[in-house]
C-alpha cells in the first residue's frame, strides 16, 4: 500500500469505480465529445452563421421562451400542489399524489397525441376554446401546454419533501409573535422553500428545453413561429446537414451544462439550508 492512500475496509472499490468510469466514458462522455469534435470542423464564422440564422434564432425564442414560461407557471402551481398534498386532507389524495408522476412515466409520444386530441379544433377542450378565439393546438400555446405537462412533477417532487420536513415550530413561533398566515408564509416559509422551489423550476426548465416527443404533435412546427430547437436538429439531420445539426446541438448542450451546473449549486444550497435546521 502506498503511503497516503486511505485504508479501505470494504472491498470492491477499484472494480466498482473502474467499471463506473469505463461505462460512463463509453456511453456518455465519448459520444458527447463527438458533438464538440464534429463542430470543430467549422470555423468560427461558419459556426456563428449556422447558430444565428433567423430560423434558428426563432427556434431558440420558442424553445427557451416557452420553457421559461412553463417552468414559471409550474413553479406557482407546483408549489400550490405540493402544499395541498402535504397540508390538507381530501378524498382521493393518495391517487392524486401517485398521479403527479404521470409525466415521468407516460411516454412522451402518448402524452403528445393525447394533448393534441384534447386541444385540436375538434377536441374535447379545443371545440370550446376555438370559438372564443383561443387556438391552442398547432400554436405556441400548445407547446406551452405540453411543456407544463412534462415539467409539473419536477417542482412538486422537489418542494414536497421540504414542506414535509418543515418544523411546525417555525410557524408556531411566527404565530406567537403575532404574524398572520400570509405574513408567516411570505417571511418565514417562502424563504425556507425557495432553494427547493428554484431547483424544481430549473429542473422543469432544463427538461422543457430539450423536450421533443410531447411537443412535436401539438406544436404545428411552423418555422419561425412554432418550431422548437430539437426539431430543427432533426430537420437538419433528415436533410443530411450533419454539421448544421451538430452546431445547434452544441448550443443546446452548452445551455444544458450551464443548467446542470446551476441545478447542482441550487441542490447544494437547498440541502445545506435543510441540514442547518
Amino acid at each position: 500500500m502506498r503511503a497516503g492512500k486511505p485504508h479501505r475496509v470494504l472491498p470492491g472499490f477499484p472494480l466498482a469505480l473502474g467499471y463506473t468510469l469505463v461505462y460512463l466514458a463509453l456511453i456518455v462522455l465519448i459520444p458527447l465529445s463527438a458533438v464538440f469534435l464534429k463542430s470543430a470542423s467549422l470555423n468560427w464564422e461558419q459556426f456563428w452563421a449556422v447558430i444565428s440564422a433567423p430560423r434558428v434564432l426563432a427556434s431558440y425564442r420558442v424553445s427557451f421562451g416557452l420553457s421559461l414560461l412553463a417552468a414559471a407557471i409550474n413553479a406557482v402551481f407546483g408549489l400550490i400542489f405540493a402544499w395541498v398534498l402535504v397540508r390538507y386532507h381530501f378524498p382521493g389524495k393518495r391517487i392524486v399524489d401517485a398521479l403527479v408522476d404521470l409525466p415521468f412515466a407516460l411516454p412522451t409520444a402518448g402524452a403528445g397525441i393525447a394533448l393534441t386530441a384534447i386541444y385540436a379544433g375538434n377536441g374535447w377542450l379545443g371545440q370550446w376554446l376555438e370559438p372564443l378565439g383561443l387556438k391552442v393546438a398547432f400554436t405556441p400555446l400548445g407547446i406551452l401546454v405540453a411543456l407544463i405537462f412534462i415539467g409539473l412533477p419536477f417542482v412538486v417532487r422537489t418542494v414536497q419533501p421540504v414542506l414535509e420536513d418543515l418544523d411546525t415550530e417555525l410557524e408556531e413561533a411566527a404565530a406567537s409573535l403575532g404574524a398572520d398566515r400570509w405574513q408567516t408564509f411570505r417571511h418565514v416559509l417562502l424563504p425556507v422553500l425557495l432553494p427547493a422551489l428554484l431547483t424544481g423550476f430549473a429542473l422543469a426548465f432544463a427538461r422543457a428545453v430539450g423536450e421533443y416527443g410531447s411537443v412535436i404533435f401539438i406544436a404545428g412546427n411552423v418555422p419561425l413561429v412554432s418550431e422548437i430547437t430539437p426539431l430543427l436538429i432533426i430537420t437538419k439531420l433528415e436533410q443530411y446537414d450533419y454539421i448544421g445539426a451538430t452546431a445547434i446541438a452544441v448550443v443546446m448542450l452548452i445551455v444544458s451544462f450551464i443548467l446542470l451546473f446551476l441545478i447542482n449549486g441550487l441542490q447544494f444550497w437547498a440541502n445545506r439550508s435543510r441540514a442547518r435546521s
Binding site: 430539450g210 423536450e211 430539437p230 426539431l231 436538429i233 439531420l237 448542450l253 451546473f261
Partner: peptide, 28 residues
C-alpha cells in the same frame, strides 16, 4: 462523478440520438 452521471438527464433526447449518428452513421 455524481454530476456526470446525471448528465444524460439534462441532454435533449434528440441530441442523445444525434451523438450516436455522429459516431456510427454512414458519415460518422
Amino acid at each position: 462523478l455524481t454530476t456526470l452521471i446525471d448528465l444524460p438527464f439534462s441532454v435533449s433526447p434528440v441530441i442523445a440520438g444525434l451523438i450516436f449518428v455522429l459516431l456510427f452513421g454512414a458519415q460518422g
